[in-house]
Computed example of a mutant assay.
Amino acid sequence: LAVMRATEKIWQAGGAASAVKLPDLMNLFWGNVGGSLGETCVPALVLGGLYLIYKKLIDWRIPVFYLVTVAILTGVYGAVMGYPSTFPLYHLFAGGLMIGAFFMATDWVTSPITKKGKIIYAIGLGVLTSLIRLRGSYTEGVCYSILMMNMVTPMIDRFVRNVSFGGGLKK
């Protein structure tokens, strides 16, 4: 992500895309790059997350909406800025996004209870992560977005409630 940030500065200054060598996308995907322990091998993280979804230990809504939101926002930002079309893939494969989406954001204690609440929570995570990564001074953003949305979770749970069985109509 730090290399991406440096590359963006060169692109914004009018430099050529070849001025800085970005890591190969396949190396990012397979984890053949430096990074914190457990955050670099995308297939292993996705398989572990899919296993947790299969066992119904986590809800699919949080990782899916989180990753899709980041992909859409970084894709739109990249298109507006004239960056290569692979720009969103770098944001999906680099840093702690995958481990955050599947293993940190889905914590039962700190994530919302309702299905709609989980979607709101995940979209908020994606927006905050994208804002921090694209416009902030910190290159990662996943840990801060999870902490900020964890603070908002009680409010989400308060305002997004399920209707009790038989309680939808008043006489």
Rank of each mutant, 00 (worst) to 15 (best):
I62T: 08
N32Q: 15
G14K: 10
A122D: 00
P154C: 03
W11V: 08
G124S: 09
V160M: 13
M98L: 05
G34F: 05
V127E: 12
I113S: 11
T139V: 12
Y51D: 13
V3I: 14
T114K: 13
T40N: 11
L22T: 05
Y77G: 00
L45F: 03
G15C: 10
V33A: 00
Y77H: 11
L28R: 03
D59Y: 05
F103W: 10
T74A: 03
N162T: 13
I72P: 11
V109R: 13
M81R: 04
D24N: 13
G35L: 03
L45G: 14
F159L: 13
M98R: 00
F29A: 01
L67E: 02
L125H: 03
P43G: 12
V127T: 07
I123F: 08
Y121G: 06
S85Y: 13
C41M: 07
G82K: 09
L52D: 08
L47F: 11
L147W: 13
G166E: 12
F65Y: 14
S111I: 07
I10L: 06
P23Q: 02
L22R: 14
A2Y: 04
S130N: 04
Y138M: 05
L125C: 05
A105C: 04
T69L: 08
M98G: 03
M4Q: 08
A13K: 08
S145N: 04
G14F: 10
I123M: 14
A94H: 03
G124I: 06
A122P: 00
T40H: 05
T40R: 13
K171I: 10
I119C: 04
T40Y: 03
G117S: 06
Y54Q: 08
Q12K: 15
Q12C: 01
L22P: 04
L128A: 12
S18Q: 08
G95L: 07
A2C: 00
A105S: 11
P23D: 07
A71P: 06
R61S: 13
N162W: 09
T69I: 05
S130P: 08
P43L: 09
K115F: 10
F159Y: 15
G34L: 09
G124D: 12
C41K: 03
G31V: 11
C41I: 08
L57R: 15
K56H: 13
G168D: 12
W108A: 14
V64E: 01
F103E: 06
V80D: 09
N150Y: 04
G167Q: 15
P63G: 02
I58H: 03
P23N: 08
L57Q: 15
K115I: 14
Y83Q: 04
L147Q: 09
T114L: 09
L22M: 09
K115Y: 11
